[in-house]
Design a protein around this nucleic acid. Structure first.
Length: 314
DNA sequence: TGCCAGGCGGGGT
DNA sequence: ACCCCGCATGGC
């Protein structure tokens, strides 16, 4: 699939750290030394943007439209007003350090399909195992786009996953394979649609996604956080539940209500920020770090949300 | 070697 | 509204 250069430019007067924004939770296939790639959700074509740490960008697509620049801005959260989140975070014992150093980080949105794959692979698995599954999934399918004569790996489409479903097992997804196939089927037959999920309220979208067997609250909410820029419903898993109960001295059963009350519409973003703060380390290590007050990412820890290059080195 | 890990659904009470 | 178990896989 050959993509043409549709737009190039530079983000000026934008207080965004493109290195952090582009590196966090991005697979090694898409990370360069001073730039990285991100796929842009669009129904008409596969679209990919190359973003340099300097703020320069190039957008590649089969079909060119002016609106692609706005779509890229949405993916990068260029116009997102996070002032309330920063204010809440600055008074928070878990995230006050984080928000000082990561003030100019933005969540990089993906399409619903990729967001669901990410969330499914986190089910009942460590950060490392989950992202290894995703890495393997992309590698095993071996689908590419071509830009300027360079081949760039891309995630398989739902149709490709359905027609080559045996590869999911090879990628090591285990019992998650059935759920992924149901999701692919739901996207192909229109039971769920990227644009519809984005336009619904978070509650309605969660309800719809949960009707697919294998998707529960955690998976639905993580996917919504990653694909809609709506953060009001936090994905609360065993990991966050335990950490929050330790830090704030509350019962695990009260964590979700507490977290939403604390963070309001930013609860999902805050949950993701905690994973970055603690390098998504396994629970016992994460708890140890909390007790020692090590509440900033450690570049020495790898792989971590901030440092996923090491998946390519294995 | 086992045991378990950022869930889930289906079975119980 | 709870509790409990099995589930595929790979890492420790």
């Amino acid at each position: 699939m050959e993509l043409a250069l549709c737009a190039r430019g530079k983000f000026n007067n934008v207080n965004i750290d493109f290195e952090k924004t582009m590196s966090i939770y991005n697979l090694c296939f898409w990370l360069g030394d001073n730039y990285a790639y991100t796929y842009i959700p669009w129904s008409k074509s596969i679209v990919v943007a190359r973003i340099y740490w300097s703020g320069e960008y190039e957008i590649y697509s089969e079909v060119c439209e002016k609106s692609l620049v706005e779509k890229l801005e949405w993916v990068l959260g260029v116009h997102e007003d996070l002032s309330e989140f920063y204010k809440l975070a600055s008074e928070d014992p878990l995230l006050s350090n984080f928000v000082k150093v990561f003030r100019s980080w933005r969540l990089r949105s993906s399409d619903l399909w990729w967001a669901l794959l990410v969330a499914i692979c986190q089910q009942n698995a460590s950060f490392k195992q989950g992202w290894r599954m995703l890495h393997e999934l992309v590698r095993v399918y071996g689908k590419y786009v071509y830009i300027e004569e360079n081949a760039l790996l891309r995630p398989p489409t739902p149709l490709e996953v359905l027609s080559e479903s045996e590869k999911l097992k090879i990628a090591g997804l285990g019992y998650r394979v059935k759920t992924v196939l149901r999701i692919a089927e739901s996207l192909v037959n229109g039971f769920i649609k990227n644009e519809e999920i984005t336009s619904l309220s978070a509650r309605e979208a969660e309800y719809l996604l949960k009707r697919i067997k294998g998707i529960g609250s955690y998976t639905a909410r993580l996917a919504l956080v990653l694909s809609t820029r709506k953060y009001e419903l936090p994905p609360v898993d065993k990991w966050l539940k335990r950490i929050v109960s330790v830090v704030y001295g509350i019962s695990e059963r009260d964590v979700e209500e507490f977290w939403v009350q604390k963070w309001r519409k930013w609860a999902g973003l805050a949950a993701l920020a905690v994973t970055i703060t603690l390098d998504a380390e396994v629970l016992s290590r994460a708890i140890m770090r909390v007790r020692r007050g090590i509440l900033l990412p450690d570049l020495g820890v790898k792989p971590s949300p901030l440092n996923m290059r090491s998946f390519c080195e294995e």
